[in-house]
Design a protein around this nucleic acid. Sequence first.
DNA 1: ATTATTGTAGACTAGATTAGTCAACAATAA
DNA 2: TTATTGTTGACTAATCTAGTCTACAATAAT
Lengths: 144, 144
Amino acid sequence: MKLSTKTRYGTRALLDLAINQEKGPVQLKDIAQRQSISLTYLEHLVTPLINAGIVRSARGRKGGIWLAKSPQEIRLDEVILLLEGSNAPVECVDRPDICPRSGSCVTRDIWTEMKKALDDVLAATTLQDLMDRQNAGTQAVARS
Amino acid sequence: MKLSTKTRYGTRALLDLAINQEKGPVQLKDIAQRQSISLTYLEHLVTPLINAGIVRSARGRKGGIWLAKSPQEIRLDEVILLLEGSNAPVECVDRPDICPRSGSCVTRDIWTEMKKALDDVLAATTLQDLMDRQNAGTQAVARS
DNA sequence: ATTATTGTAGACTAGATTAGTCAACAATAA
DNA sequence: TTATTGTTGACTAATCTAGTCTACAATAAT
Ligand code: FES
Ligand code: FES
């Protein structure tokens, strides 16, 4: 039950974008550098976010990417769904038909609860929340 | 974020054991047959449970395995920990030292919440609960 | 004692998945 | 026109998963 690096890096990249997009499009190159992710790999992380419409992009000089919505409108459950797929720990939680006995399978109930628990945690947090925490943290460090 | 078959089969095997242990040791062969798991694979699933002391075993004729504790004393978080490992979706949740910036990493807070949410769900359910649900289900079917 | 039966341990393997890289291409601003 | 930036997809090495296979250890029945 580990998250892929795609999800972890992708989430970090999105947070980086949220923090740095004030002055217009942010270039992948810069995100890659700040977050220590290879540029070619980062491209793959961003693609699903663009396709889903939560990030927008422009090519060419002065190109880059930016958030299509405000940070408080982007919940982590959407992000993780795009990067990692469903939080269902077993396939049959989402598609009962693939397990013949899913109607009477008691372990499936538990797997379903696990999915819901994860969804709840992730749906309760937005990109804005992460930005706020980040700022609070750096201020605390600066203050000390 | 998928559970391995080891965890899924292992949990089913344990539930099968809990249900069938009334008349003494249950043989792996029988669990394998009832649960449609190959005997040789099942052996690997059971080993960590035996080593951890929640299942006991005896070899030879009339041998088999049985629960070392009563079903209501066996929580699913223990079981999943043994079969799948920690619910931490990222290694650094359990071992902050492996990520240099773990002290100020805001995504890590989220991964930590995910782990806690999973632990809470699993700790709230015992093998006895699964047995009860199973019985309720089959009765409901029989009644209908 | 011997033997059939049961669990134990670990080496081994095929296939799937992950975590990337690489190269060719498309769009746009200067 | 060209330098720059994102897009796409093929490709690969390494790792992990889901098992199998073999030899062995312990015990009950005979
Ligand atoms: S594992 Fe799919 S229904 Fe039980
Ligand atoms: S991912 Fe480990 S601390 Fe941020």
